[in-house]
Amino acid sequence: DLRYRYPSATWLDRRASRLDISINNQYLRTLPLAGAAWWKALIGGQDGASSSQARAKVELPNYNLFGQNELIFDYNLILGTKKKCEGTLPENVHVAIDPDSAIDLTHAYHAQRMPSLATFANAGYPFTISPDLAETVVVVPASPDLGIVEAFLAMMGRFGDSTGAATTGVTVTQASDGDRLEGHDVLVIGIPRTAGATALFAGAPVRIENGRLRVVERNPIERVFGLISPYGASDVGETNAFLTTAERFDGFVSFRSPFDAARTVVAVMSTNTADLPELVQGLAEQRINAQVQGDLSVTNGEGMRSFAVGQTYWSGSLPVWMRIGWWFSERPLLMALSGLLIALLLAGPLYLLLVRQQRRRLGSEDAA
């Protein structure tokens, strides 16, 4: 719901002037600058400096909305009469987007398939659901060093930048027991050895084995469901080979909290805590940020390599029909087979009906 203001003057070419709107470098719409209402001229409203206000409804396409967005309003003011030595706009010309403009997201669905390190890297989800991080607990080692403290402050800065609010409601603790973490999303900052030794990692898709991080093997039931899952192609052996050959671990791990099924754990870990700040600050680079996906993302020297090795779950709520549509959208083969099955089910009765009508018609012609 946009309300915008622009000059109302005789020098402005109202037909040629316009307001162009774009979001994330994608053009949306052009709005006219129609000038002042006719009745203002009758009452003398055009004397001196004056402005006009207009209102418009602009739809923001959901496919182009991300965690960080840039909405651009580009005024193009054209002179109506270009006399000699008057080819530029007058001084002190002002345009504005009025503060009572609003972006309406009330009818949006609030749901996300988790874990999703991509949404964490982009917008700090799920921690930034509460702008001041009142529903977040940060777990750090008993004696955090400078690297951990710096990484913690850098992460809080990213969250604050995403929400526009200070992270004054966050809870920082050294304990990882269920009483403290139940009902909260959990952010772990530390080294793999200390983080993996707690009960918090009991349901994690990775574990500490011989001082190295390894992916937990799936049980037979999980393997069967993985065959029709969009994440079923994740090769646990390949992931373990990558983790084993790496001399160190720097990356992110996400999984469902063992203390609250509706909550998520994200662990920011590095074998050398001095590298933690660089790991967090790397999320500000567009190339690195785009590579952080799935539930396990590890540095590989050139950037990040991501995997999806754990079980997924829904955070939030969606209508049943939309969940079914989402489920099929990630399984194109099953969607094609379902479409073929529906076509057969519809074609069968229709074929029998047409055959029956043909027999009646042929029978009536024979009788005639």
Rank of each mutant, 00 (worst) to 15 (best):
V186K: 04
G190I: 04
I191Y: 10
I191L: 12
R193M: 10
A197E: 15
T198D: 09
T198Y: 09
L200C: 05
A202N: 11
G203Y: 01
R207P: 08
R207M: 09
I208E: 12
N210F: 12
N210A: 12
G211Q: 10
R214G: 02
V216T: 10
E217H: 02
R218F: 05
P220T: 02
I221C: 09
R223M: 05
R223F: 05
F225P: 04
F225I: 13
P230C: 05
P230A: 06
Y231W: 12
Y231A: 10
V236C: 00
E238T: 13
L243D: 03
A246S: 15
R248H: 13
R248L: 09
V253A: 03
S254Q: 05
S254M: 09
F255N: 08
F255D: 06
R256H: 08
F259C: 07
F259H: 11
A262V: 00
R263V: 00
A267D: 04
M269V: 09
M269R: 06
S270D: 13
T271S: 15
N272F: 14
T273Q: 07
A274V: 12
A274P: 11
D275Q: 15
L276F: 08
L276A: 06
E278Q: 15
V280Q: 08
Q281H: 13
A284M: 10
A284V: 12
Q286D: 14
R287Y: 12
I288K: 11
Q293N: 15
G294Q: 07
D295N: 06
L296P: 03
S297E: 01
E302C: 05
M304C: 10
R305T: 11
S306C: 04
S306R: 08
F307T: 00
A308I: 06
V309R: 05
Q311E: 10
W314A: 01
S317A: 14
